[in-house]
């Protein structure tokens, strides 16, 4: 595919633990085009964050290990780059907002120290100390934090959760990245603040026309934030389509289950869940990893691993129900 900003191919990751080897990512495929807002949906623990940490090459290793695959950013494989080259992709090329801002900020350094380091090292151009500082103030202003000068001297514990996430957003945007990865940026926040943060994030990326990967487990959020949606299950992408197409015509049994699991305002009653649990990565089920929970599974699902197949205009699904033969 040409014009792809980020192209992940066949990414496999294993985690070595005491009990054995966890096969966490099982051949992840995804493409993000320039200017696209991509939503990545899946249950907790399905490998969304791990995939993104691989993209930035910040997966803690050990225990994590990338065993196969390519991550092409502007056509160049991030996994084959030298340390120096990776460093120039980080920040200015790709920046990430983490799920929990409290964990993502260093507790023993001031916001100013951390933000200014990011601007100093992550920006395309080399800036003087004064420019770094003024850019830090400007970007804090942009994420609507009151009194940026004071925030610079504050430590993370002096800020509320919502303010911390604003700081993290400011850090991620301060280097003007081409691709922003937002990893469930509202999950750890109060419900009342979640909406504010989403709106802010949306406005900021729209103004800059930044490409975005928006990770979430909420289909409602995807509906608001994304143009195209990837659905992930147990370490692989199982369906991808444009947002409208996916919501009107979900094909994979897991995607259908997710749709049914969303509580509806009208209609009443409790939303259905998907029976069963996310599989054990130590001994993943043979064949399709969703097969033990799937109402449509048959022999082929146990014997073979389904791969993504295009079934309609830009609509791909990894399920044997939609493959010929």
């Amino acid at each position: 595919m040409t014009g792809a900003l980020l192209h992940v191919q066949g990414l496999k990751v294993e985690f070595k633990v005491y009990e054995g080897v966890l096969k966490v990512l099982n051949g992840v495929q995804m493409v993000v085009h320039e200017g696209e807002r991509m939503g990545l949906v899946g249950e907790a623990g399905c490998g969304k964050t791990t995939t993104m940490k691989c993209v930035l090459r910040i997966l803690p290793s050990p225990p994590g290990k990338i065993t196969a695959g390519q991550i092409l950013f502007h056509g160049r494989d991030v996994l084959k780059m030298t340390f120096h080259q990776v460093q120039r992709v980080r920040g200015r090329g790709i920046a990430m907002i983490f799920q929990d801002p409290t964990a993502a900020l260093n507790p023993v350094f001031t916001i100013g120290d951390q933000l200014m380091s990011v601007i100093k090292y992550g920006s395309r151009d080399s800036l003087g100390a004064r420019e770094v500082r003024s850019r830090a103030v400007a970007v804090l202003h942009e994420v609507q934090l009151p009194d940026p000068e004071r925030i610079l001297t504050n430590y993370p514990i002096q800020l509320s959760g919502g303010m911390r996430q604003r700081v993290c957003i400011a850090m991620a945007l301060s280097t003007e990245p081409e691709l922003l990865i937002a990893d469930e940026p509202t999950t750890s926040l109060d419900v009342t603040i979640q909406d504010q943060i989403l709106r802010l994030l949306n406005a900021l990326v729209e103004r800059r026309s930044t490409s975005v990967i928006f990770i979430t487990h909420s289909l409602g959020v995807v509906r608001e934030m994304a143009d195209r949606v990837y659905v992930m299950y147990a370490g692989s992408i199982i369906e991808s389509a444009a947002k409208e197409e996916l919501f009107s015509n979900p094909l994979h049994p897991y995607t259908q289950g997710l749709m049914r699991a969303v509580p509806k305002l009208t209609g009443g009653g409790i939303a259905e869940g998907i029976p069963g649990r996310i599989p054990d990565y130590l001994n993943p089920p043979a064949g399709c990893r969703f097969q033990p929970r799937c109402p449509h599974a048959w022999a082929r699902c146990v014997n073979e691993v389904p791969t993504l197949h295009e079934v309609g205009q830009g609509h791909e699904v990894a399920c044997f129900r939609f493959q010929e033969q």
Binding site: L56, G91, N106, Y121, G122
Partner: peptide, 11 residues
Amino acid sequence: DYIAAAKGFGI
């Protein structure tokens, strides 16, 4: 995460 984040921002 703060170490991953610091590295991820290009420091």
